[in-house]
Amino acid sequence: MYDTGKILGGLAIFVVLITAPAWYALATGHRGAPPKLELPAGADGKHCIESSSFMRAEHMQLLDDWRDSAVRGLDRDYLAADGETYRINLSDTRQSGACFRCHSHPAQFCDKCHAYLGVEPYCWDCHQRPGEK
């Protein structure tokens, strides 16, 4: 007695599941390139708080450090690596460190990248973003 049919059926299911991402990408044509982000222009457009490569990898860490520094250490000044000082804030776009002062359309910047990578920060449950109430 052989169960070849059943075993090959199971194997086929396994192969389809394990290769599903490739078929999905090829079939839908979503090549998965990173989204085009809207970067700040004009006077704000020179550079970010830290270098762009640092920000891409570490901005969540920076925000976390800022939170500790502002809320626990009562220190709202951040000295960047290039010697410039920024006023720590999340929502008040008059403050020099507010991300949204320069990145004024988070939907075209933060959200796009986050959606691409499946990141859903819960910070905006409390903190306000421009254009939202």
Binding site: P34, R56, Q61, Y116
Partner: peptide
């Protein structure tokens, strides 16, 4: 940390 978007 690494730049996750490049990894993806």
């Amino acid at each position: 940390k690494v730049d996750v978007s490049q990894v993806k």
